[in-house]
C-alpha cells in the first residue's frame, strides 16, 4: 500500500527555559493512502499538534515529515500552502468559515484560488457536494444562519472541493450533539469509501470505532495502536468495535 504520510522521529516543544514542554517526543508514524485513521489520547497528549505537524501547518523542531514523497520541512510557506490547497482538506471542531461569505462561497473559496474552471462550474460542483451532504437549501445563507451540524457539513464540502488526497479532522464532531455527530461520521465514512484518506483526532470512542486504525498518544509518544479490522461496518459490528476499543483504551490508560 502506498505510504502517503511518513513522520520520522518528530519532536515539537512549546515554551522556553524551565517552562519548555515537549508535546511530541520522537514520534514516528506512517499513514497509508486510503486509510481511515483516528488519533486518541488524553488532553495535552499532543494529538492536535501531531495532526497540524503532519499536515504541514506547523513546523516541527526535529525529525522529518514527507507527504506523497515530498519533505515538508524543505518547503517554503507558499509551497506548503499550495500542497494544502491542492492535496489536503481540513475539518475542525469549530466551523472555520469566513463570516463575510455566504455558505456556498465558503465552500468554493479554496478552489477559486487557482482553478482554471469558471465560477459557475465551481459553483455547480459545490452544489453537488451540498446536495450530497443534504445542505443545498442553505447555499445563500450566512455563517450565522446555520446550525453547528450544518456548518460542519459546509466544512466537509469545502474540504472536498479540491478532491483532496487526505482529509484532516480535528475533533470534527466534538462540538455536535450525538445525532449530528453520527451523521457527520457517516458522511466521512462514505467519503473514505471513495478512496480518500482520512486522519482525525478525537476523544470519542464511537467516532474512533468507525476508523480502521487508532493511534493512542500519551505524553508526546505513540503509546499503542489498535486496529478494529473492518472497514465497512454494520451497526452490530460497530457496537462490538466500540466495546473492543473501550477495553483497549482502559488497558492503555492504566
Amino acid at each position: 500500500m502506498k505510504r502517503l504520510i511518513v513522520g520520522e522521529n518528530i519532536t515539537k516543544a512549546f515554551g522556553a527555559g524551565v517552562e519548555k514542554r515537549k508535546v511530541l517526543d520522537g514520534i514516528s508514524v506512517e499513514i497509508n493512502a486510503g486509510e481511515f485513521v483516528a488519533v486518541m489520547g488524553p488532553s495535552g497528549s499532543g494529538k492536535s499538534t501531531l495532526l497540524f505537524a503532519l499536515s504541514g501547518m506547523d513546523k516541527v523542531d526535529s525529525g522529518y515529515i514527507t507527504f506523497d514523497g515530498v519533505d515538508l520541512s524543505r518547503l517554503s510557506d507558499n509551497a506548503l500552502a499550495d500542497i494544502r490547497r491542492r492535496k489536503m482538506g481540513f475539518v475542525f471542531q469549530q466551523p472555520t468559515l469566513l463570516k463575510s461569505l455566504n455558505l456556498l462561497d465558503n465552500i468554493m473559496l479554496p478552489a477559486m484560488r487557482d482553478s482554471g474552471e469558471k465560477a459557475a462550474q465551481l459553483a455547480a460542483k459545490a452544489r453537488v457536494l451540498m446536495q450530497r451532504t443534504d445542505i443545498l437549501e442553505l447555499e445563500k445563507r450566512d455563517v450565522t444562519q446555520a446550525s453547528g451540524g450544518q456548518l460542519q457539513r459546509v466544512g466537509i464540502c469545502r474540504a472536498l472541493m479540491n478532491d483532496p488526497q487526505i482529509i484532516f479532522g480535528d475533533e470534527p464532531t466534538g462540538a455536535l450533539n450525538s445525532t449530528a455527530a453520527s451523521e457527520i461520521m457517516a458522511l466521512l465514512s462514505e467519503i473514505h469509501r471513495t478512496g480518500t484518506t482520512i486522519l482525525l483526532v478525537t476523544h470519542d470512542v464511537k467516532v474512533a470505532a468507525q476508523t480502521e486504525r487508532v493511534l493512542y498518544l500519551f505524553d508526546g509518544k505513540i503509546a499503542g495502536e489498535y486496529r478494529p479490522g473492518l472497514a465497512n461496518l454494520h451497526h452490530d459490528d460497530l457496537k462490538a468495535h466500540e466495546e473492543g476499543l473501550t477495553a483497549w483504551l482502559t488497558e492503555m490508560r492504566f
Partner: peptide, 14 residues
C-alpha cells in the same frame, strides 16, 4: 480569517 485562508492554501502573497 487569515488563518482559515492559510489553512486552505492561500499564500502570504494572496
Amino acid at each position: 480569517s487569515i488563518a482559515v485562508m492559510k489553512i486552505f492554501g492561500f499564500t502570504n502573497t494572496d
